[in-house]
Design a binder for these strands. Structure first.
Lengths: 113, 113
DNA sequence: TGGAGTGTTCGATGAAGACCATACACTCCC
DNA sequence: GGGAGTGTATGGTCTTCATCGAACACTCCA
């Protein structure tokens, strides 16, 4: 029998999708939202694992914000990890780019006009 | 004074957007739909100006189909021209690719799984 | 001139999803 | 233990949009 991983938290870990299992429709739908584009762009401009969910400058309440992060996780765009009471984020640049070459860069580079 | 173009038709010409004036959000939203992806892909596999609107194999009625073509025109993805009673289509490959490099190819190449 | 073929417009309906306020759960530190 | 800080879940509202049926407009040809 395999040993279970040591359980240091009583909080359910966030559910992730790897980009490789994400349909292109899901990826496009996830990126076709102004709030989520903003999240991705701010995340791209910060070192990995440095941004907590509440640290983003978006004009929505925290409930909606939590929802958006769920969509980004499901699309394979964002990875999350619990650090104490906070939840820190990382943009899955390489993995996502391997699955959808150029898409992420397009969103990061384009002027939103 | 410039001469007006000879008017050979009494039907209003379809309204187009050039990809250069299309916000990326509009482009992503236009592509985040299974019916429209199918239209783009079939169009990509046919010579220009050969496909009429009704010639596509999509599971929607003609009213919805007309709506989808309107969205594709507004996103700078499709150009239309009237030919007699029919309306023929052309995928704006080069122009769209110049504005959003790689995006169209991504949609054409990806398995929809 | 009138009918067949093609596509758009209109009005209505139903589903999806973006949002909020509230309540809850978990972690840390005093 | 209790309170502050952080994020999630729930229930409800509102908007957007995909869809349809039906009516309409235009073109071509018999």
């Amino acid at each position: 029998m395999a040993m279970a991983e040591e359980r240091t938290s009583h909080r359910p870990a966030p559910v992730h999708s790897h980009p490789d299992e994400v349909p292109i429709l899901t990826a496009l739908a996830a990126l076709a939202d102004p709030v989520r584009i903003q999240l991705v762009r701010e995340l791209a401009g910060s070192p990995e694992w440095t941004r907590t969910c509440g640290s983003f400058d978006v004009p929505v309440g925290k409930a909606a914000l939590s929802h958006h992060f769920g969509v980004l996780r499901a699309a394979g765009l964002v990875e999350q990890r619990d650090e104490g009471p906070k939840r820190v984020n990382r943009l899955r640049r390489e993995e996502f780019d391997a699955r959808f070459p150029g898409l992420l860069e397009l969103v990061l580079r384009a002027d939103l006009g």
